[in-house]
Design a binder for these strands. Structure first.
Ligand SMILES: [Mn+2]
Ligand SMILES: [Mn+2]
Ligand SMILES: [Mn+2]
Ligand SMILES: [Mn+2]
Lengths: 221, 221
DNA sequence: CATAAAGATTAGTCTTGCCTAAATCTTTTA
DNA sequence: TAAAAGATTTAGGCAAGACTAATCTTTATG
């Protein structure tokens, strides 16, 4: 069985390589995991030895199929745990991430399967991240950052790309969460500041915050 | 924070030292944890350095107050997790132990507190083991092994001292679980075999199995 | 009470996963 | 196109936690 450390590296490589499957640089991993560069180099070599990543010195790493399976398993655990904590124990969406980060390595496959069933096979976690199936399928949606929306558009929030509790609590406070419908009233040309209407409330968000919200356009009512 | 290994050693010392608080020998720990004798010696030294056990070479170890606190915290996590898995996810009492053995090291104090609250502050786990409170209180009951009961006695099952799935499934099958009322029909003098009546069913258990059931005498109806 | 057996510790290794400092490779810039 | 800057790897160490083989201490036994 993989160690917690190995699971965290694989998960990090998965997230950093993205859909484009670009080689993940040592530096990016080191920063993401807050581990020194030489430590990352060492781990990449050992993951390559175990056939979990395809690693080219000085070029970076990509997950192999085996590595991808392991990464998706941990991500699946993480996201189902998040939904479970909210549904069963009244956790709020800014609290679940930290707890799931440790539990993801301690749950058995059968426990996660039972959680999934008890929850009715949810497809997304509280932040809108897709939940991989037990056999490694993960759904993909066509979304865009809110920051590219233009005045007059109506969009639905699909996903939030930030797990920081402060950010999540703020988003919750202004009502900007997955499923929410947003009307874009105005976008300032010089700094991207956006003026939105949601639930009949007028709010305003910076371009950098809007860039973390993934949305889809919806037809006007 | 203590490592998983340290937590498991402390828990083992707690269980092995018992209520009599007898020094736990290296050999007993080695067998209980399935770890070599020299490894145990090494760990005991390091636990002593950290002030978690009182260790005398060749004499064995006892928990200090700090060690006891840590052990009770892990035991509390373990037992509340067991109750939670049964109540929320339909686990059976023979499945929960293995799962709790890993989760006990991964849950936060606040998660456990929420679990405890959601369950209504249970005092015992599914096997009748007492659940320590958040501040380290643990209730003690006056119980005796079923094996010392004599013909004609009526007893209530309070606790099972075995976590082996096969044993637990068997006990469940014959209806011998905490809370169950038992009438002792006969005890064989030469091998201790016991003939019992519970729920109007006649069953028979060996002395060694009966020794693992802790009971209290109850008044006849 | 002397000695053998059982129990425990010491000595010496190994693996995992982390670190810093130094060397080397790659990319950028002048 | 060469030097500087930046990224990466190599070299060398350390701590935790496990192991085996050898040695010492305690306990049991004739
Ligand atoms: Mn998360
Ligand atoms: Mn993690
Ligand atoms: Mn248990
Ligand atoms: Mn454990």
């Amino acid at each position: 069985m993989p160690t917690i450390s190995v699971e965290n590296y694989l998960k990090a490589v998965f997230h950093l390589q993205g859909e484009a499957e670009e080689r993940v640089k040592t530096k990016a991993l080191a920063e993401h995991l807050d581990i020194s560069l030489p430590s990352v180099t060492g781990m990449l070599k050992s993951l390559a030895d175990e056939g979990l990543v395809d690693y080219l010195p000085y070029r970076g790493a990509l997950l192999t199929e085996a590595g991808r399976r392991m990464a998706l398993r941990v991500i699946r655990n993480h996201r189902l745990i998040e939904v479970f904590l909210m549904k069963t124990l009244d956790y709020s969406w800014d609290e679940v991430h930290a707890e799931a980060e440790r539990l993801e390595h301690a749950v058995s496959d059968t426990l996660v399967a039972r959680i999934e069933q008890a929850l009715g096979f949810p497809k997304f976690d509280p932040h809108g991240d897709p939940i991989p199936s037990a056999d490694g399928e993960i759904s993909r949606r066509d979304v865009m950052p809110l920051s590219v929306a233009t005045a007059g558009m109506r969009v639905r929030v699909e996903r939030v790309l930030d797990q920081t509790p402060e950010v999540l609590r703020y988003l919750d406070r202004i009502g900007l969460r997955p499923g929410g419908l947003v009307y874009v009233r105005e976008v300032l040309s010089f700094d991207g500041q956006m003026f939105l209407t949601l639930n009949d409330e007028d709010v305003s968000v910076s371009e950098s915050l809007a860039a973390k919200m993934l949305v889809t356009e919806v037809e006007p009512p």
